[in-house]
Every structure is written in structure tokens, then in C-alpha cells.
Write a protein that binds this DNA or RNA. Sequence first.
DNA 1: GATGAATGAGATTTCATTCAT
DNA 2: AATGAATGAAATCTCATTCAT
Lengths: 198, 198, 198, 198
Amino acid sequence: MPEDKRQLILEASVRVFARKGYHTSRVGDIAEEAGVAHGLLYHYFKSKEELLETIFRNTWTLMLDTIRGVESLDDPSRETLRKVAAIVLRAWRDTPDIVRVLVREVTRSPHLQQEIGEIEQAFAALERVIRKGQESGEFRDGVDPRFASFIFYGALEEILTGWVMGQLPDTEEDVRIAERTIVEMLCDGLLSAAPVRA
Amino acid sequence: MPEDKRQLILEASVRVFARKGYHTSRVGDIAEEAGVAHGLLYHYFKSKEELLETIFRNTWTLMLDTIRGVESLDDPSRETLRKVAAIVLRAWRDTPDIVRVLVREVTRSPHLQQEIGEIEQAFAALERVIRKGQESGEFRDGVDPRFASFIFYGALEEILTGWVMGQLPDTEEDVRIAERTIVEMLCDGLLSAAPVRA
Amino acid sequence: MPEDKRQLILEASVRVFARKGYHTSRVGDIAEEAGVAHGLLYHYFKSKEELLETIFRNTWTLMLDTIRGVESLDDPSRETLRKVAAIVLRAWRDTPDIVRVLVREVTRSPHLQQEIGEIEQAFAALERVIRKGQESGEFRDGVDPRFASFIFYGALEEILTGWVMGQLPDTEEDVRIAERTIVEMLCDGLLSAAPVRA
Amino acid sequence: MPEDKRQLILEASVRVFARKGYHTSRVGDIAEEAGVAHGLLYHYFKSKEELLETIFRNTWTLMLDTIRGVESLDDPSRETLRKVAAIVLRAWRDTPDIVRVLVREVTRSPHLQQEIGEIEQAFAALERVIRKGQESGEFRDGVDPRFASFIFYGALEEILTGWVMGQLPDTEEDVRIAERTIVEMLCDGLLSAAPVRA
DNA sequence: GATGAATGAGATTTCATTCAT
DNA sequence: AATGAATGAAATCTCATTCAT
């Protein structure tokens, strides 16, 4: 049975990292979780760190492709942002362990973060969406698109973090509420009276 | 005055954690940075972890007090949020290393699970501000205040992260732009045409 | 013809051992050098050690036979020693990698303790030549033939080592000089005035 | 009791390397032999390899100094060579474990050998002695001094090797015989009739 | 014959922490 | 208070060898 051991090990590492954190996870734990000898791990991956790197890269590549797909639909900008929010937030219900690992480790690995251009590209994509919204007149000028993209991404990530840390409720209904809240807040604003627009 | 060396070590640990991350920092690095023998560290602190805990508690308490101070001024809610954003973002220029450590290590560290209680209080304060704004009619209903507080916090944190990682410009002027962008985006919204408010 | 691959592996191992030394060479290196899967190696050889053993035995046997051939010619002893020196030293130009391995690994390897019996035979042959020279009156008495054989062998080996390590020049002309130097020095001596012989 | 643990470890490593060979010796063996925790080894030495390197360098430095001392006495060249031979050969009785390690490992560590300029300097010293003998007329011309120094050194090393491998007798009397044999053979030659000198 | 995935014993090294001085 | 030698648990990684295909 030629089950793909490489994939087996990779998925095991996601579960173990999610459970114990990267630094606290031992290579032996991962091998045990995968049901293979620990030596095999080094047949497929150069090091423990390469596992984490692979998880990062795989996920971000996928995420980026999806975002680009959404971008190319040419929806109104608000709708594009909503779809992006939906994709990111629903990852929590689809692959919670991966989200756990990313949320907990990504920020703490300055080394990794730099190597992974995908993250930067995600910001760039968000920035494009916002800038395009401004050019079309749907979004107002005067908001810096670069900072805005960070704000949007930070909002998404913090909600994921809240779920990971168990600080926020996360039923399916909650996920929908979170999605709507982000879009309404960032696009429509908190204020009840519309501000005077220049 | 024995507090001297203790403080020396603590400040050294902030710099080292900021530079290399908690897990990657060795006790010897901190001692070297402080210019003392590594044994001395254990005279003042129980363990390496206690250092991180101390950094967190010192800063977080201060931050929390400042936020509560702002809260008690009874400004309009939008103005309160602006002041909170200003305090947090300006900390970057004043004590960037501490910000680095808090952003990277503390908020999402399983080490400090017990500290989550104190982190929670920050979210609770933000939530109060938003809820109060809704009750006074300044903010519209229909936005979940709990999620909104996470969004606000996440926006702040991501901009700090952008600065930490060198992805965002951080001159004094930029800090002001960031502050304004956050408040405008979250309170007034991205849209150019004010939506119909129920 | 299955001997093909066997020979391929054997020759590859000579090159790899010569380049990196026995202990530092990995079985995978040898397989790669030979262009075969490393598993195949175990089809032809019991272990990594058997490779070294095989190299040794092949070469040493050949060398020993040649020396014995020279011995049986019944030349004057000085001429016999010259021919032995010539054979050994010229091997460097013909098969430098094998010489490298023999010089570096085999002669002083505890792995091949059992092979010392065969090494011993080389010394015994040299000893016989010297002793015979003494009996015929060509060489003087008073020089211990056993020690003398080691001195002769050591002289040869060190020059080979010098070539292996790049410390000595090794053009064809140099090889001839080396050969002459050894014979002159060991047979005629360094002194300009002949000592009084008892 | 401030016994020098560094020295303790170094000496233990000599014994262990002598007994089992460098590659076969485990760091734990050395620590056990020294009666310390294996971690301490890394307090004093960067790695297992640095131990071997230190042994090499210490011994060669000592040896080189001694040779230079002998050189500066300005004895007749034959006498200088005799004294050098005596120093080198007597090392076997004085510090047999060190000799064992050097004889067995030195040739097999191409890496180390290059780093240790002392070896080359020893050859240079021998070369100087021989050349000086030629210039003074004590030694005849026509023998290449560089090759001659290798021959001399090789003769010494092979006799040490014979002792290490148990192939040669090594009573005090034997050591004296070896010393005399080397000098007689290399200076006076094997021949009973003095050759015609040009 | 030939492959290379799989194994696992075992090696080196790191580093937080202790403690005698 | 201050030092840094000493400890040893624990972690990562290597690599000769086996064996199913």
C-alpha cells in the first residue's frame, strides 16, 4: 500500500504542532503520531524546521491563489473583501489545526516570515483591492491603502487568534457574525451618523 | 541598591527577546547583554520564563491603567478610541523593544495562559467603550461589540507587527497617519457613500 | 555480466575513501559516485568495511606478488631494493587513489587487525632481502634487518604521504629523484666520507 | 580543590582515543574516564574534534620546540639527527598513549593536518639540518634534502607505528637499537663497502 | 539484479538550572 | 551579591543496514 508517507508525516506534524507548539514538539512525537520511525522524517524533510516551513508555504500558497481567484471575479470591492474575509475565517472550521499553528508560530518566526514572500503578496493583493475600490469611487480617498490592508488583515488574524485561544465563541453562526462584523465595521464604519465626506 | 542589577537584567532580556524571540534566546545571551554572570539571573528571577512574565505584567498593567484612565475621561467614544490607538501606537516609538516582545511572544504564548486573564481585561475595556458608544447612540447597533473589540485590537497589533517586521514605514508622520487611518476606517468606514443606517 | 557493477562500486569506493577517508565516507557517497542505488552495494558486499578489506586485499596481494617476483630475480640486494622502491613509488602515478587509501587507512587501521598478517609478509620480504645482502657480504652486519625493513618501508610510505598531501612535488622526474634518493640514502648513507667499517 | 578539569578531560581523551581510536570513542566515554559530566567537556572544548586538535597541536608544539633546541646546539649534523631520533623514539616509552593517537589518527585527518603548520615546520627543520650538513661538507651533495627529510621522518614514524601495532619489540634496549639503526642506516648507509663518492 | 523507502541504535551537542566559593 | 564551573536531561540528526517490491 503506497500511502504517501510524506503527507502522513506532514499532517501529523500539523496536529502535533497544534497541540504542543512548535518548540515544545519533539521530532519523536511527530514520528509517533504518524506511526513511522523518526528517521523517515529526515528522508522527506531536511529538518524539523523545514516541516514548519512547508506547512507555512503550502497554506499561504493555497490562500494566495484563492484570494487571487476572488480578486479576478471583479466584484464590487466591498464584496471582494467580504469574500476574502469569508475564506480566511472559514479556515478555522475547515482546518483548525493549521490555523492554530499559523497563528501561534508565524509571528514568532522572524526568520521564516521573511523567507515567505507569499505573506507580503497577500498584503499586496489586499492593497490592490482597496486601491481599486478608491479608483472606482466605491471607496473614498484619504485612507492609506497600505495601512488599510494591514488593518484588514490584522482584524482577521485577531479573530482567528481569539478562536485559537478560546476567547471568542466559534459556532458556525459566530463565524458568520464575525465575517459580517468585519466587513460592516471596516467598510461602513462604526458610526451611526454618516460622517461628512469631502 | 540591588534593584540596579535586577533592572539591568530585565531590560537586557527585553532587548534580547525582541531581537531573537523568547525560545531562541539563551539565558547566557541575556546575561551577556546585561554584562553579568548568568548565575546572577537566578538570584533575581526564578527562571527564564519569569523574565517574560515580568516584562508582560509590568507593561500590560501600565497599558491597562492608561486605557482605563482614557476611558474615565468620558470623551465621545470615537475620541476615546482615538486616544487608545494613539497610546498603543506611540509606544512603538518610545519602547519598540517592549512592543516587539509583547506582539511576538506574549499575546499568543501558551506559556502565559494564566496571563490571559489580564489580556482579557484589555479586550473587556475596548468592548465597554464600544458598547457605551452604542448605548449613547454615537455608534450604531448591529455591530457585535465583542468581535469589534478584537477587530480594533487586531488592527493595532498588525500595524505594530508591520513596524516590527519592517514592512511598514514608521516615521513620526507615519505613526500619525496610522492612528488616523485606524480611527477613520473603523469608525467612519471605507465607503465613500454613507450606507443607509437602520 | 554482474561483475561490472561490483567493480564499478569497488572503484567508486576507492575514489571516495581516497577523497574523504574511510570513516567520513558514507555508503550513500559511494553509491552516488558509482551511480547506483545504495542498496545494491549490499548485494555485492557484506558491509562498508568489506569494501575497505577488498581494496586492501586486492592491492596488497598484487604488490606482494610483485615484490616476491623481484626477490626471486636474485639481483644484487641494492638492485632488489631499488626495484621494490620503483614499484611502490610508481604505483603513485598509476593508481594514486589506491595508494591514498592504503597509506591513510589500511596500514594503521584497527579495523583490519586481521590483515596485519598480510602486511607482515611485506616486512618479512624486505627483511629477507636485507638479511640476504648481509649474508652475501654486500651489506654490512651490525644493522638490525628487522628495524631496517621498517625504516625502508617507512621511507617509502612517507614519500607517498607527501605526495598524497601535496607536500612533495610529483612529476615523473620527481618520482625518479625520490626513488634514487631513497636507495642512495639507505644503501650509501648521507655521509660524504665513508665511515670506517668494522 | 581546584584541580584543573580541563587538563583532566584532555588527558582522559588521550587515553580513550588511544584505546578505541578517535571515531569509535564516544564523548561519553571520555567524560566517564575523566569522571565528569559530559556537558563539562563542552565548557572547555568546542567539540570532540577540538580535543583531537588540541592533542595534536600541544604535542607538535612541544616536539618542535625540542627539535629547535637541538638544532641550536650546533652539533655535527649526524649528531643532531641522532638526538632528534632519540627524542622522537623515546616518546614511545614516555607517553605511549599520545604516540598511539598521533600515529593512528594524524595521517587519517587530512583536515587537521593542513591546519597544523607545526608538522610542516618539523620537516623544514629536518631539511635545514641536512642542508647545513651538506654545506659544511659533512654530508655529501647529490641527495635532495627535502626528500631526505621525508625519508628520515618516515623512518621514525614507521618504527613508532611498529611499536603501536605490536609488530616490533620495544624494550628500552630495543629503543636504543632502533635509534642507532636509523642513524647508521641513513647516515652511513647499508653497504659494507663504501661507494665511490664523486 | 536493482531500487530506495524504512528502520532505529546511537552519537553529538545544547542549555536551563544549581551551587560551592 | 556575584561568579562561572558543573550537571545531566533531552533534543536533533546521521547513517549503516534491511527488505518489500
